Amino acid sequence: MMSNLFSIFDPSTNLFNLPINWIKTMLGLLFLPYSFWLIPNRHYIMWNFILNKLHNEFKTLLKNNYFNGSTFIFISLFSFILFNNFLGLFPYIFTKTSHLTLSLSLSLPLWLSFMIYGWINSYQHMFSHMIPQGTPSILMPFMVMIETISNIIRPGTLSVRLTANMFAGHLLMTLLSNTGNNMNFFMIFLLIFIQILLLILESAVAVIQSYVIAILSTLYSSEVN
């Protein structure tokens, strides 16, 4: 029972003996030609509006660290996670963001690059983040320990947050769908209605989680002076 239930999250599943689950991660490249259209369609106009809003928000969060093109990495991160979250809502498509393999490989290099850059270029500024202003002298060693631990677990919290949210929603939908064989005609319609509501909720979670990851990554980079 458990192996069948969790097999939908198994990246080793394949189609026609072709391991194409992870290849679908790069399908977002197919949307690039939209930017070269002579007359943009409504999809491109809406997507361009969202990216401009994100650019202005990331620009505000970066403050003194902003320079031309610095928001592109976070907009790309948002777009990549959003596309894979939505792709996982379709039937028979493997959800890449429900695995730590993908989410940790995104958050860990970002966090590590911020830390290396910060400690090499402005170690005094990084040390000042360890002790909040106004901390009593007797509490300073404990604050340094707490801030160090909270800083180290940042990539783990980013990846686990994304993985857990995507995994939990898909698992709940799978559990409910497996009960449909034992239901009568009326309960089937109720189950379909509940599944539609869960699908709407998962669509909102897909947007929110990609936005949260991008915002937190921007905030972490803004702390590096």
Rank of each mutant, 00 (worst) to 15 (best):
S3E: 12
L5P: 00
F9V: 03
D10E: 09
P11I: 11
S12M: 01
N14D: 14
F16P: 02
L18K: 15
P19A: 12
I20R: 08
I20M: 13
N21F: 09
I23K: 03
K24S: 11
T25M: 14
M26S: 11
L27Q: 11
G28A: 08
F31T: 10
P33S: 10
S35H: 11
S35M: 11
W37H: 07
I39A: 11
R42H: 07
Y44F: 07
W47E: 14
W47L: 11
F49Q: 13
L51Y: 11
N52K: 15
K53V: 07
L54E: 04
L54N: 05
N56C: 03
E57N: 13
F58P: 00
K59T: 05
T60K: 15
L61N: 14
K63S: 15
K63V: 06
N64T: 12
N65V: 13
Y66L: 05
G69S: 11
T71D: 08
F72P: 00
F74W: 11
I75V: 02
N84M: 12
N85V: 01
N85P: 09
G88T: 06
P91H: 05
P91Q: 05
P91E: 06
Y92N: 15
I93C: 05
I93E: 12
F94V: 02
T95L: 12
T97V: 07
S98W: 01
S98I: 01
S103G: 00
L104H: 05
L104K: 02
S105G: 10
S107D: 00
L108E: 02
P109I: 08
W111P: 01
S113L: 14
S113R: 04
F114I: 07
M115W: 15
M115Q: 04
G118Y: 12
G118C: 06
I120T: 14
I120Y: 08
N121I: 15
Q124R: 02
F127I: 00
P132I: 09
Q133R: 05
G134K: 00
S137V: 04
L139H: 10
F142C: 08
F142M: 14
M143V: 00
V144G: 05
E147H: 13
I149K: 02
I152M: 09
P155T: 10
P155N: 06
S159F: 00
V160H: 05
V160A: 07
F167V: 02
A168G: 06
G169T: 02
G169E: 02
G169V: 03
H170C: 04
L171E: 09
L172T: 02
L172Y: 07
M173S: 10
L175W: 08
S177R: 04
S177M: 01
T179Q: 12
N182V: 05
N182E: 15
N184W: 10
M187A: 10
F189Y: 14
F189L: 12
L190F: 14
L191G: 03
I194W: 10
L199Q: 14
S203E: 09
V205D: 04
V207P: 01
V207K: 03
V207N: 04
I208T: 04
S210A: 15
V212I: 01
A214T: 08
L216G: 05
S217R: 02
T218E: 09
T218D: 07
L219N: 06
L219F: 15
Y220E: 11
Y220A: 04
Y220V: 01
S221P: 00
S222T: 00
S222R: 10
E223Y: 00
V224H: 01
N225T: 05
